[in-house]
Amino acid sequence: MTDALTVQVVTPNGIKYDHHAAFVAARTKAGEMGILPGHVNVIVPLEVDELKIRRVDDENHVDWVAVNGGILELKNDVLIIVADSAERERDIDVSRAERARIRAERALEEAEKVYDIDEVRRAKVALQRALNRINVSQH
């Protein structure tokens, strides 16, 4: 057992996060999951939500990352998250996220008016992603 996790968040656009951590919290399809060094190896699907990463360099230093779903793989204290998109708290363009939220809310209203189930689902996912980015930006 080591005293740190190596944490990487990878998207099709490259590595978005790469540090050592003492603790990581993530929301999986089965619920909230906390990971400490020495955790059993696991592969789980993630929800659209935030990652909370407590860094080893300072116990009060927490990094927040907005992740739009993906897969979390932990093997021998190396935690890799593969996601379609991810943004660190400091990199989120809040005004862009707010515009995305407004677009998604409007799309959801329109889709519900015409009872288009597929469009309702797409709009709900877009809204969830925008709200996740906004929430992470506020940490």
Score class of each variant (00 low, 15 high):
Met1Pro: 15
Thr2Arg: 15
Asp3Gly: 05
Asp3Thr: 09
Ala4Asn: 13
Ala4Gln: 14
Thr6Val: 10
Gln8Tyr: 06
Val9Tyr: 14
Val9Met: 09
Val10Arg: 09
Thr11Pro: 13
Pro12Cys: 01
Pro12Asp: 06
Pro12Lys: 03
Pro12Phe: 01
Pro12Ser: 04
Asn13Tyr: 11
Asn13Ala: 06
Lys16Pro: 14
Tyr17Thr: 00
Asp18Lys: 09
Asp18Gly: 03
Asp18Thr: 05
Ala21Thr: 03
Ala22Cys: 04
Ala22His: 14
Ala22Glu: 05
Phe23Tyr: 11
Val24Cys: 08
Val24Pro: 14
Val24Ala: 09
Ala26Asp: 04
Lys29Val: 05
Ala30Asp: 13
Gly31Ser: 09
Glu32Ile: 07
Glu32Arg: 14
Glu32Thr: 10
Met33Tyr: 14
Met33Pro: 14
Gly34Val: 08
Leu36His: 10
Pro37Ala: 06
Pro37Lys: 06
Pro37Cys: 07
Pro37Met: 02
Gly38Thr: 12
Gly38Met: 10
Gly38Cys: 06
Gly38Arg: 11
Val40Gly: 00
Ile43Asp: 03
Ile43Trp: 12
Ile43Asn: 10
Val44Asp: 08
Leu46Val: 05
Glu47Lys: 15
Glu47Asn: 08
Asp49Asn: 11
Glu50Trp: 15
Leu51Asn: 05
Lys52Gly: 05
Ile53Gly: 07
Asp57Asn: 08
Asp58Ile: 13
Asp58His: 10
Glu59Cys: 00
Asn60Cys: 09
His61Asn: 12
His61Tyr: 12
Val62Phe: 08
Asp63Gln: 14
Asp63Glu: 13
Trp64Glu: 01
Trp64Ser: 06
Val65Asp: 00
Ala66Leu: 15
Val67Phe: 01
Asn68Met: 07
Asn68Arg: 05
Gly69Glu: 10
Gly70Thr: 02
Gly70Met: 01
Ile71Glu: 00
Leu72Met: 13
Lys75Cys: 00
Asp77His: 07
Leu79Gly: 04
Leu79Gln: 02
Ile81Asn: 03
Ile81Met: 02
Ala83Asn: 06
Asp84Gln: 05
Glu87Asp: 10
Glu87Ala: 12
Glu87Tyr: 12
Glu89Val: 09
Arg90Ile: 12
Ile92Ser: 05
Ser95Asp: 07
Ala97Gly: 10
Arg99Val: 01
Ala100Ile: 05
Ala100Ser: 06
Arg101Lys: 15
Ile102Phe: 08
Arg103Ile: 01
Ala104Thr: 11
Ala104Asp: 06
Glu105Leu: 15
Glu105Asp: 13
Arg106Trp: 02
Ala107Lys: 12
Leu108His: 05
Glu109Arg: 04
Glu109Ala: 04
Ala111Gly: 08
Ala111Trp: 02
Val114Cys: 09
Asp116Thr: 13
Asp116Glu: 11
Ile117Met: 12
Ile117Cys: 08
Ile117Ala: 08
Glu119Gly: 14
Val120Phe: 14
Arg121Glu: 04
Arg121Gln: 07
Arg122Cys: 07
Arg122Leu: 05
Lys124Met: 14
Lys124Thr: 02
Val125Thr: 15
Val125Tyr: 08
Val125Cys: 00
Leu127Gly: 09
Gln128Glu: 04
Arg129Glu: 00
Leu131Ser: 11
Leu131Lys: 11
Asn132Gly: 03
Arg133Ser: 06
Ile134Asn: 01
Asn135Leu: 07
Val136Tyr: 15
Ser137Ile: 04
Ser137Gln: 07
Ser137Thr: 00
Gln138Asn: 00
His139Glu: 07
